[in-house]
């Protein structure tokens, strides 16, 4: 009789993740229901103070702003990424297209943010250029507002949207578009009614891969945003490191996690039928990819 070694193999990882992922998360959950300590930390006393504090108008404002910025940035990203995915899928040299999308992301995340600061700053490239061209006298303020935050977020997450869109569009049967055109659909109609429903799986993945990280954004609003573009991530960090209100930080963290999970669920539900397809497709493609590699 064969013995079952499964538990033995998986034990180290399960222990590690329980200790350093599940336990910290459990602590956060517990802290969110406790009272704030006098000098940071918590008082071991059950309380809903932290959740009540969530209703404070400043925090609500930040929450709505976070939602709005995430939605706007995600929408812009998808809108730009769709034609890109389409263009790569239809080009003769797909590898080159994908390569060009990926290469800028070989630079460090912070360097990419820094590059935008160097362009948009008061003494940055853009202002320099405008001054030399004689268009402006005083430097224009491009940085430290919501527009800059959205622009940089779109820049950061574009590839995450382009890649899944490309891989589903690549599998789309383009003769269907021609059929639609032959049957009298306009170009736009053909795309909206034939292409988009058929690439729903890729759209869902693209939305998830951009919305989730953007919703929890921290570094981008911190570095290119001003006070009026603070997002929930920044509030959490401030509560932990500056104000040292751990219960409140925990409660906001719980909210962010919860909303992220809800977003993931919603999108998965809406694409229920497609999800299974995506899963099968991914399996088939993965197999093909490995064969090609070996």
């Amino acid at each position: 009789m064969k013995r079952n070694y499964g538990g033995l193999y998986a034990a180290p990882q399960a222990l590690w993740l329980s200790l350093f992922f599940a336990a910290p998360l459990a602590i956060i959950v517990a802290y969110s229901f406790m009272k704030k300590g006098l000098y940071g930390g918590v008082e071991p006393e059950a309380s809903l103070d932290a959740y009540r504090a969530l209703a404070n108008p400043t925090l609500l404002l930040v929450a709505f702003r976070t939602l709005w910025v995430s939605l706007a940035a995600t929408a812009a990203t998808i809108l730009v990424a769709l034609p890109c995915g389409y263009s790569i899928a239809r080009s003769r040299n797909q590898s080159l297209g994908l390569f060009l999308v990926i290469v800028p992301f070989w630079t460090n995340f912070l360097v990419r943010i820094y590059a935008w600061i160097a362009i948009l700053g008061n003494e940055g490239f853009l202002n320099d250029f405008l001054r030399l061209a004689g268009l402006v006298g005083e430097p224009l303020q491009f940085l430290y507002n919501q527009g800059a935050v959205i622009l940089v977020l779109v820049y950061m997450y574009l590839p995450y949207a382009i890649l899944p869109l490309f891989s589903t569009i690549d599998k789309f049967d383009f003769t269907l578009l021609e059929a639609a055109r032959d049957l009298g659909a306009s170009r736009l109609e053909a795309i909206v009614k034939v292409l988009l429903p058929n690439i729903r799986g890729g759209l869902v993945t693209a939305v998830l891969f951009t919305f989730i990280p953007i919703f929890g954004a921290y570094a981008v609003p911190l570095l290119v945003g001003g006070k009026d573009s603070y997002m929930l991530g920044n509030v959490i960090a401030d509560q932990v490191t500056k104000t040292r209100n751990w219960p409140l930080a925990s409660a906001i963290s719980m909210t962010v996690t919860f909303l992220t999970a809800v977003a993931a669920m919603l999108f998965a539900l809406r694409s229920r039928r497609k999800a299974v397809h995506v899963e099968i497709d991914a399996g088939v493609e993965a197999t093909a990819a490995t064969r090609a590699a070996s």
Binding site: Q94, L98, A289, R291
Partner: peptide, 29 residues
């Protein structure tokens, strides 16, 4: 379903994007 579909998707993307780049042969599929 999510736990199966999303990671698969991710693995696939990682492959395609930069890690394995096994997708190189894809254009000939």
């Amino acid at each position: 379903r999510l736990a199966i579909a999303v990671p698969h998707r991710l693995v696939h993307l990682l492959r395609r994007a930069r890690i394995v780049r096994a997708g190189r042969g894809r254009a000939t599929v």
